[in-house]
């Protein structure tokens, strides 16, 4: 076998492996955080809705905060999940608690979102927490048309 033939076979194999791998990767449709790639637990999900109606999804408030503080794409609004009901709520009306419960082992996020103040207080009391300000307040001013 000439070296050209061997090289040709090798490169064809390489193309086959890379194509197979790329197609396999594309077929994986896990919900992953747009910031750190971790699988998203629905109860802790945060969505940043862009002005062009695209959405960025995150696995925690920490990741959403980090992404928002770095990127310059215009944001329309941010949606968090009420940890009691799983309901989508606008981040500006949620109550936030910093407690000892970690929502994500990767980034140690301890900030939790609630729709009702009494739920937030109950969580804070149960898990040595305290109610904190909206973490997105400093970095994101809601879009006003």
């Amino acid at each position: 076998m000439s070296k050209w033939f061997k090289t040709g076979i090798f490169l064809i194999l390489i193309i086959a492996v890379a194509s197979g791998s790329a197609i396999y990767k594309k077929s994986q449709r896990f919900e992953k955080c747009d910031f750190d790639g971790v699988h998203i637990k629905p109860i802790y999900r945060v969505d940043a809705i862009l002005k062009n109606n695209d959405a960025k999804r995150f696995d925690s408030i920490y990741c959403a905060y980090m992404w928002l503080s770095e990127n310059k794409e215009p944001i329309s609004h941010i949606m968090v999940r009420d940890e009691v009901t799983g309901e989508k709520i606008d981040a500006s009306i949620a109550y936030y608690v910093d407690s000892e419960i970690i929502t994500n082992n990767v980034n140690n996020n301890r900030v939790h979102a609630f729709l009702k103040l009494e739920d937030a207080e109950r969580h804070a009391k149960s898990y040595k927490g305290r109610i904190v300000k909206n973490p997105f307040e400093k970095i994101f001013m809601p879009y006003k048309p």
Binding site: L11, I14, I15, A18, S19, S21, A22, K25, K26
Partner: peptide, 11 residues
Amino acid sequence: LLMISIHLTIG
């Protein structure tokens, strides 16, 4: 180079 190009194209 080929492998990365294929991933950049298909992915």
